[in-house]
Design a binder for these strands. Structure first.
Length: 757
DNA sequence: TAAGAAACTTAGAATTCTTACC
DNA sequence: GGTAAGAATTCTAAGTTTCTTA
């Protein structure tokens, strides 16, 4: 657990225990009538009756420490202050330039309703529905427009190549800033998806995700390889030969012993419990105390293996690479509506120990090996059904084209379903992404009205409406997540609707500000959200009312949950949900900050700095943090060392320069004059390098615990960035790497420099 | 209608690959 | 050429929303 991102096990405990305690109360009083879960109880007590206030009281618990006193590093303060700055003001509306007509064709592919599968057979008559592939292929070669059943060989070898280079006319590529392929890295077409400008096609019928889907099924984790005899496990100082089943699980743990997880009691307890389940009776009898287990040789063995891999010859490495590529070629792609598309995660998750984040009560449990018999395959009826590994069969094969997944299985830790789905650059994902940003833009058009409405609702006579209105204000102003209710057996984290009294503090006055709300809670992934925000008086007063007669463990918004909230939002704008506000505010912030920060006279690095700062403002708004990188302080020290050395060098250079000038003054020879010039140049160079290092240092420090990637990938309408690049002549490669350019190909093609979110 | 299941997006960590620097 | 730093990629947990079922 390094750095700022303490995942607060302690604070967490306080939450948890409070939860437990009131849950226990609940059990004693009301339970048994209904099924079981605390959540059930929770939500029913929350919204069902008019006496919910009383119920709240009853639900509340003796709260020892309300939330923990968190330990702040100085830089984390910095982050917070900065966040406060960025977050304070609600985004001011900017006039929209684009009107409905500017919205490209695919924008009309909006919301889809879940419908009965529309099987390929249903549309076998080629002429009616405009199947995208057909459009493409008809353009290129009428004969290939016929739906084609591909056999395995056909599928696995090379995809039907698109014939026309026309399709590749992505506007940004007309700029003279091509990404030159690296030497020795010739592109293997079998390792690429075909370019499919799906946004120029017409969409499928509502609810229909594909017409044809063919794939090879998932790639299973390699079988367990028993340890060589010389690698031993010890119990109580004596070597013990484990059964293969027990050994495999021991290896999961042994490989992790350097990790912080193995110092956690919950992790260790869960591990031991599950480990014992796979032991034979003799092992069960003997191995009872984890503290007496010695996994060191196992750990060393895998470290050594990793070293060996690193030290392998070039040829050896190449061989492995080839083998991997072969797997990707076979399993990494599917054919969907006659286009070859990359799959996102075609490998079945290997067995191991569950790495739940934060105070997850199930961390350390054994994640079981998934077998073909656990896997459901989803593909076209008329496609070759993927073959299960020899001697096995699939759990089920279905043909449901109202969903986008290729394979699914149920994992044993939480009982949730896992899916194999397409890569982010695929049509299926891209289209969804596009629609997401369109919905956010739609919100922009009516956000003023919505804001006016919720402000009005702060005065409502009805508590539920006031709560809803204040929650909306938080979601809008602070970009909080919706905050669903959670199961008991997960980490105790919250979002807007599930915030508890203990998570906020009210200050009539704090420093020089009035009506300050201090938030302190653990959000998604147990990342701490800490913020002090000056709010409007009415919000403040409402919060005081919401908190009256409640205990720290009670819900702040006891008359609200995400379903109620989203239902209301839906009534305000079609497609509006809580998370749209996050997308909307993030994209708006980027656009605003770019306008504010970009200087068109700057050089490219200068503009990039502006871009990154705008990106950073969004990351702060959305509270995207990361653990301080490993060796961060060491790296900073090294950098400081370099800077110090460079400073000395600058000093020396200055001295040399002065000396050369003195020499020249004494004797004005050509040599001396040249020497002066030379020394001047050296000085300039040294100064420039010093400056560069100093900027690097600032940058590194500022980015210490902020993650930029998440917002870039998920929240920022890529057309804003593309337009910015075009407007300010910054090559797109500067802001998006290859993968990102693939994901945002639609935006790169669509957006012109005057695009407005 | 509400709870639970299913489907899909968002998230940071871990791992691997590439580049920069000595 | 070796190493460290940084970037890219992979991995999968943890959310939100939507759909289904009782």
């Amino acid at each position: 657990m390094n750095g700022y991102k303490e995942r607060h096990h302690k604070s967490h405990k306080s939450h948890k225990s409070s939860k437990h305690s009131h849950k226990d109360k609940d059990r004693h009083s009301s339970k048994h009538s209904s099924s079981s879960s605390k959540d059930k109880h929770r939500s029913s007590s929350k919204h069902s009756s008019s006496s919910s206030k009383d119920k709240d009281k009853h639900r509340s618990s003796k709260h020892h420490s309300s939330s923990s006193k968190h330990r702040h590093s100085s830089s984390s303060h910095k982050v917070k202050e900065e966040r406060a700055e960025v977050k304070q003001e609600p985004v001011s509306p900017i006039k929209m330039k684009m009107d409905e007509d500017d919205i490209p064709l695919s924008a009309r592919m909006v919301k889809t309703e879940k419908k009965r599968p529309c099987y390929a057979e249903d549309d076998d008559d080629e002429d009616d529905a405009p199947l995208s592939v057909r459009v493409d292929q008809a353009k290129k070669s009428p004969s290939s427009a016929k739906k084609r059943k591909m056999d395995d060989d056909d599928f696995m070898s090379s995809p039907k190549k698109k014939k026309t280079p026309l399709a590749k006319k992505v506007k940004s590529e007309t700029k003279p800033t091509p990404t030159t392929p690296k030497k020795g890295k010739e592109k293997d077409p079998a390792l690429q998806e075909d370019k499919w400008e799906w946004w120029k096609d017409e969409g499928l019928a509502e609810g229909c995700k594909w017409r044809y889907l063919q794939h090879m099924g998932p790639y299973f984790a390699p079988e367990y390889e028993p340890l060589p005899d010389h690698v031993r496990f010890y119990y109580d100082g004596k070597p013990v030969k484990l059964s293969p089943e027990a050994e495999e699980v021991a290896v999961f743990y042994g490989r992790m012993i350097d990790h912080d997880y193995t110092t956690q009691e919950v992790f260790n307890d869960n591990f031991l419990k599950d480990w014992r389940k796979v032991m034979n009776s003799k092992e069960k009898e003997l191995l009872r105390d984890l503290r007496k287990c010695n996994f060191n040789e196992i750990n060393d063995y895998f470290k050594l293996k990793s070293e060996e891999r690193k030290a392998m010859s070039k040829e050896g490495k190449l061989e492995i690479k080839k083998q991997n590529e072969e797997i990707v070629k076979q399993y990494g792609f599917c054919v969907i509506d006659h286009h070859r598309q990359k799959i996102g995660n075609f490998r079945i998750e290997p067995p191991g120990l569950f790495r739940g984040r934060g105070d997850h009560p199930k961390r350390g449990m054994l994640k079981k090996r998934i077998m073909p018999e656990d896997v459901i395959i989803n593909c076209s009826k008329d496609s070759p059904i993927p073959k299960p590994p020899p001697g096995h069969k699939w759990k089920e094969v279905r043909h449901d084209n109202t969903v986008t997944w290729l394979c699914s299985w149920t994992e044993n830790i939480q009982g949730s379903i896992k899916y194999v789905m397409l890569n982010a650059a695929s049509k299926l994902k891209g289209e969804k992404d596009f629609n997401k940003y369109e919905t956010a833009r739609k919100l922009y058009k009516c956000v003023d009205k919505i804001r006016a409405q919720y402000r009005e609702d702060w005065k409502s006579k009805e508590m539920r409406i006031r709560q809803r209105a204040v929650a909306m204000y938080f979601i809008d102003k602070l970009a909080l997540r919706a905050g669903n209710e959670k199961d008991e057996d997960t980490a105790d984290t919250v979002g807007c609707c599930s915030i508890r009294v203990e998570h906020i503090k009210l200050h009539e006055k704090l420093d020089d500000k009035e009506y300050v709300v201090e938030f302190d809670f653990l959000g998604k992934d147990s990342i701490r959200y800490y913020n002090r925000v000056a709010v409007e008086k009415r919000v403040f007063k409402n919060l005081q009312i919401f908190m009256e007669n409640k205990s720290p463990g009670d819900d702040l918004f006891d008359r609200l949950n995400t379903a109620i909230l989203n239902k209301h939002l839906q009534s305000l704008m079609e497609g509006l949900t809580a998370k749209v506000f996050r997308t909307f505010n993030a994209s708006r912030t980027l656009q605003e900050q770019l306008k504010l920060l970009t200087d068109e006279d700057d050089n490219v690095p200068g503009k990039m700095l502006s871009y990154n700062r705008a990106n950073r403002a969004v990351a702060i708004l959305c509270n995207h943090q990361r653990a301080v990188p490993k060796n961060f302080s060491q790296q900073m020290e090294n950098l400081q060392g370099k800077i110090d050395a460079k400073r000395d060098a600058v000093k020396d250079a200055k001295r040399d320069y002065k000396a050369s000038k003195a020499d020249y003054k004494a004797s004005r020879s050509i040599t001396n004059q040249k020497n002066v010039e030379k020394k001047k140049k050296a000085l300039d160079r040294a100064q420039e390098m010093l400056h560069k290092l100093e900027v690097q240092q600032t940058d590194k420090d500022e980015n210490k615990e902020i993650a930029l990637g998440t917002s870039k990938l998920n929240y920022l309408d890529p057309r804003i960035s593309v337009a910015w690049c075009k407007k300010f002549d910054v090559p797109i490669e500067k802001i998006y790497n290859k993968t990102q350019r693939e994901k945002f190909a639609w935006a790169i093609d669509m957006a012109e420099e005057d695009y407005e979110f």
